[in-house]
């Protein structure tokens, strides 16, 4: 009756296999690759050309904007990608089929995290390359700043991933997912100082934005890519690095709880 248990697959080994499969599928969906990866570059080209003025000593608007777009990249590749993709998989029956196999649920999420990590790294690399090549963005020169960037990418991407999984239960169908998710992202981008200088926004908008993680991701990205002298132009007069990480971490925990409690393998 019972089968040989020679080399039982583990959640992690299956998760890695799922990650490979996710990447393979992602690369074959050309439209979505182009949309996810090139759209931010197009925005960068437009904003960088329209607003070429300096906003402070040695800081152009495009530098400010590149920092914001890198933070947005965390939201696009995690939250937006997953909150649109998972409802489609739910509609297609992918999730129900997986539920009927011995695959551990955690393996599915490990696979998604691998996909998000890879697409995030490509996205950030493209934005940095374009920023350095065309918009005078300076790469960090100290080890501390690089470390800060790495920490921001890891924590921010994890936060964005779990929130995307959690939010995947909000759209009623796969077809409508994009229409539900994209406006959320765009509004947050406006409120969080991606398209405008944050401190120029109305007070109430700043206060609303401060509740959500994107505002802190953009501020964190500025602390990496803008000169420290610019910190005095921030709301608190400094980078608030500790607070930035605390709030993103809090959203990570909240998103994790929300995702675990609400995830559905089938459409109702």
């Amino acid at each position: 009756m019972s089968k040989s248990t020679g080399k039982s697959p583990t959640a992690i080994s299956i998760g890695i296999q799922r990650g490979k499969l996710e990447i393979k599928q992602f690369m074959r969906q050309r439209e979505s690759v182009v949309f996810t990866m090139l759209f931010p570059l197009i925005l960068l080209a437009i904003f960088g050309s329209v607003f070429s003025n300096s906003i402070a000593e040695g800081v152009t608007f495009s530098q400010y904007f590149v920092a914001g777009m890198i933070a947005s990249g965390l939201v696009n590749t995690g939250f937006q990608q997953l909150a649109i993709m998972i409802p489609m998989e739910r509609d297609f029956g992918t999730l129900k089929r997986l539920r009927g196999t011995p695959m551990p649920a955690s393996s599915y999420f490990i696979g998604k995290a691998i996909l998000v990590t890879l697409s995030m790294l490509i996205q950030v690399a493209l934005l940095l390359a374009a920023g350095v090549a065309f918009f005078g963005v300076n790469l960090p020169t100290t080890a501390e700043k690089w470390l800060l960037l790495a920490a921001l990418l890891v924590l921010g991407s994890a936060c964005s991933t779990v929130l995307g999984i959690a939010f995947s239960n909000v759209p009623k169908s796969g077809r409508g997912a994009s229409a539900v998710v994209s406006p959320v992202v765009i509004v947050l981008q406006f409120f969080s100082g991606v398209f405008f200088i944050f401190t120029d926004l109305p007070q109430w908008m700043q206060q609303v934005a401060a509740v959500f993680p994107l505002k802190w991701m953009t501020q964190g990205a500025r602390s990496v890519f803008l000169p420290d002298s610019f910190a005095t132009r921030e709301v608190a007069g400094n980078w608030e690095t500790g607070r930035t990480f605390a709030i993103i971490a809090a959203w990570l925990v909240l998103g994790l709880l929300w995702a675990v409690r609400s995830f559905k393998w089938e459409r109702d």
Partner: peptide
């Protein structure tokens, strides 16, 4: 084997 599914079109 569930009722018709549409997934994994790119594999």
């Amino acid at each position: 084997v569930l009722q018709s599914t549409l997934d994994a079109g790119d594999l």
